[in-house]
Amino acid sequence: MTYRSDTARYDTMQYRASGKSGLKLPVVSLGLWQNFGGTRDYPSAMEILGHAFDAGVTHFDLANNYGPPAGSAEELFGQVLARDFRPYRDEMIVSTKAGYTMWPGPYGDGGGRKYLTASLDQSLKRMGLDYVDIFYSHRFDAETPLEETMGALAQAVRSGKALYVGISSYPEKETREAYRILKEMGVATTIHQPSYSMINRWFENDNTIEACGELGIGVIAFSPLAQGVLSGKYNKGAMQGTRAEDPNGSLRANAIEPRVLDAVEKLSAIARSRGQSMVQLALSWVLRRPEMTSALIGVRTLEQLKDNLGVLNNLKLSAEEIAAIDAATASAQLDHRPRW
Score class of each variant (00 low, 15 high):
F85D: 01
Y170F: 13
V157I: 13
G216S: 06
N205L: 11
D54L: 09
Y170G: 06
E245Y: 04
I217K: 11
R180P: 00
N205G: 11
S268M: 12
I322H: 00
A271G: 14
A255K: 00
K236S: 15
L215P: 14
I191K: 00
D335G: 03
M1C: 04
N313T: 09
Q193P: 07
A330G: 02
Y136D: 05
N200K: 02
D133T: 13
Q280P: 09
D326N: 15
A269S: 13
T208I: 09
T101A: 15
T175W: 02
Y170K: 08
P224T: 06
F53W: 10
G67F: 03
L302P: 04
L315C: 09
S250A: 06
L153Q: 07
H59R: 01
D6Y: 01
L296M: 15
I93A: 05
Q276H: 03
T208P: 15
V132Q: 05
L309R: 00
A82R: 13
N207K: 11
I209K: 10
F203C: 13
P194K: 00
Q193N: 09
E174A: 07
A162V: 03
H192I: 08
A238C: 09
N235P: 00
M46K: 13
G213V: 07
P290M: 06
F77A: 01
R339D: 14
G38C: 09
W340F: 12
I93N: 06
M46C: 09
I297W: 02
E257T: 14
Q240N: 12
I181Q: 02
R126Y: 11
T2A: 11
G111W: 03
S44K: 10
A8T: 15
M292I: 14
R272M: 10
A98Y: 04
P68W: 06
R272Q: 10
A253G: 01
G249L: 09
F36N: 10
N248Q: 12
S318K: 05
P69L: 10
R139K: 12
S29R: 00
H59I: 00
G232Q: 12
K125G: 09
Q227C: 07
P68Q: 12
H51W: 05
S294G: 13
Y170S: 08
G99S: 12
Q240R: 12
Q155S: 15
N200I: 05
I322N: 03
T117N: 06
A269L: 15
P26G: 11
G99D: 07
Q304D: 05
T329D: 05
G108K: 04
K125E: 15
A178H: 04
S119D: 07
E172R: 15
P145N: 01
L76R: 00
G108N: 06
F60P: 01
G275C: 09
S119R: 03
D41N: 12
K20L: 09
D307R: 08
M198A: 14
E143D: 15
P145R: 00
A324G: 07
F203G: 14
A269I: 13
P68E: 15
G78E: 05
R9Q: 01
L120R: 03
T208H: 08
A327G: 05
F53N: 00
I167Y: 00
E204A: 06
I134F: 08
S331V: 11
M46A: 11
T39S: 13
Q193E: 11
G105S: 14
S72W: 01
D90R: 15
F53Y: 14
L305K: 03
G38M: 06
T149I: 10
V260R: 02
R16W: 03
G160I: 10
Y42I: 08
R139A: 10
G310Q: 04
